[in-house]
Every structure is written in structure tokens, then in C-alpha cells.
Computed example of a mutant assay.
Amino acid sequence: MKVIFMGTPDFAVPTLKKLHEKGHDILLVVTQPDKPSGRGKKLKKSAVKEAAEELGLKVFQPDRIKKAENAEILKKLQSDAIVVVAYGQLLSKEILNIPRLGCINVHASLLPELRGAAPLNWSIINGCVRTGVTTMMMDVGLDTGDMLLKKEVEIDRYMNVGQLHDLLMETGADLLTETLEKIEDGTAVRTKQDDRLSSYAPMLDKQTQTIRWQDKASNIHNLIRGLSPWPAAFFHLDEKMVKVYSSDFSEEATNHEPGFVLKADSDGIVVAAGQGTVILKEIQMPGKTRMTVEAFLRGNSFPISVTLK
């Protein structure tokens, strides 16, 4: 099949490599422009661009894919399909109508659940016990197109978003190649989404990252693992930000106010929540490296009988 591939982060790389491995004719790889990174603001290639160059594929990096001249470039390639995996820009109706067989998206949720920008994070933050990948035909809506195939995975109590990301990026690659096979042989079945069952996974911001000790301990634990390793949940100690990367929780009641530090030892930093307690296991103090609480306490102290904000 003649394919145009659109993607940007490392989540999209396994799908690109699988398409190449399966012998599809990848006419063009479209990815976001190089962006300044680090203290020196040196331009950094996207993960997809690096992979495409390793495979010897042609790369196109428009600042805005919707521009008319970019649609003309894509039209001239006469593709069978456009495959989109976390590209980062919305496609115009004109582009959606270009490929002979349509535009196929790999979305990291079991649609219509968690449409939007951050389904991986929100599946864990919301306390879901299962999620997955859906391939779908793209339309002008936000993740509203007809579904093709789904693959479900389980989320256990301690899985963080980094681990889920690595699992689903491989699952998505396999599901996309299976989807293309079914489209080619005419056995693909399109299923409309039930909008009544939809939910939204908005972009993350500082407000989302802030730990609110008044919340239930289980919800705080889900927030921490849903934002680990990036961008990380945090709280403030002496007006300085402390990031948290792993935790546990207990539903046992406490008489202390939310945010009160009960103890800090090799088992973790125990903090009262609105219901139950949260046990912080891995933290990053300001200006320090990320480390387990056990390692941190070997050379440092953490205040107890104080109330965190």
C-alpha cells in the first residue's frame, strides 16, 4: 500500500517502523518542525524524524499542514492511505479527502472514551482499570471518526503513564498493520462512535499537576502515576516545588488534616489526605535529582508534623 505517514513523538515510531517492515511504500513522513531544546536552545529533531532518516525515508516538516500549498504536495503523491499517529496538528477536510482509502488514525484509548490530547495520562488519573488502542477513519471532528479495530490492555494499581505509553505504542503498531491488511482485503468493518458514551482527555497544565491533599488518597495516587515520569505531579514545601514520581496509599482513616506529614522513613513519606493517607515513594527536591525517599533520607531530612500545601 502507498502510505503517507504523519507522526511526531516516540509513541509513533513503532508504527512507522512496522509499516516499513511490512513492506508498505512509505511515500512521505510528515512530522512537526525541529524545536529548540535544552539550555542552548539547539534545534532538536522529533523522534519520528530521526526514525525516518534512519530508514532512508523522505521527511516533510510544514509549520502548518493546513496551508493550501501543503495539501497540493500531498495530492501529487497519489497515496492509498494517510496514517496518523500523534502528529500534533489537525488535518483539513481537503487533506482528509486526498488518499484513495482515507486517513487512518491510531488513538491511545478505547473510543469513544477519552477523546483528545492526553488519553494515556487521563486513563490513569481517572483510575481506569483498562484502556487500549483504537484505529479509526478520520473525519473533521476531534477523534470522532468511525472505529475500525480495538485492542484492550489492563492497568494495574501501580502502572504509571510511562509504562502504559511503552505498552500501547507497540500495541498500536500491531493494530495499525492489522487494520491496513483488513482495509486492503475488504474485510474492515466501520463502527460509528456513540457520542453519548464519549469522554474528554484535555491537555495537561500546572493546575492538573498540583496535588490537592483534600482529595481521596487513591485519587492522589492515581494522579501521581498518571503524570509519571512526565510532567510529574507536585506539591509545595516552604514555597518550593517538590515533584513526586511514585507512591502508594492506604484507605485507613486518620484524624489529621489533609497535607499533614505523619512520618518520613525508609518506607516513604506518609501524608494525610481527605480520605486515607498517601505514601510518597519517589521524589525530586528543588535543584536535586529524582530519587527514592529511602535514598533521599540517607543524607537529608524531611519535616514531619507540618502541613503541606
Results as ranks from 00 to 15, higher is better:
D143Y: 08
D267K: 13
I155M: 03
I283Y: 07
A117K: 15
G102Y: 13
D238N: 12
K17N: 13
Y200N: 06
R212Q: 11
L168N: 02
S92T: 07
I155H: 07
L297K: 03
Q193E: 11
K263G: 05
I279E: 03
N105M: 00
T277P: 03
Y87Q: 10
K35Y: 15
Q207D: 15
V129I: 15
G7H: 00
V293W: 10
Q61T: 09
E50P: 04
V84T: 13
I224Q: 05
K263L: 12
K44M: 14
V140H: 15
L111D: 12
A232P: 05
R298N: 10
V270A: 04
F234K: 01
Q61G: 01
E54K: 14
I98M: 04
L19E: 04
T131V: 06
L74T: 08
K2E: 04
M1K: 05
L308F: 04
A47P: 08
V244M: 05
K192H: 15
P33Q: 03
L308K: 01
P99L: 06
P258C: 03
D238A: 12
D139V: 05
A108Q: 04
F5Y: 02
W122A: 08
T292Y: 11
L227I: 12
K216M: 15
N219M: 13
I26M: 06
G141L: 10
T289F: 14
D238W: 10
V106A: 07
L168S: 01
Q193F: 13
V3A: 08
F302G: 00
L27V: 06
L19T: 08
A217M: 06
R115F: 07
E294N: 13
A232T: 09
L77A: 12
S109L: 01
V161Q: 10
L237P: 02
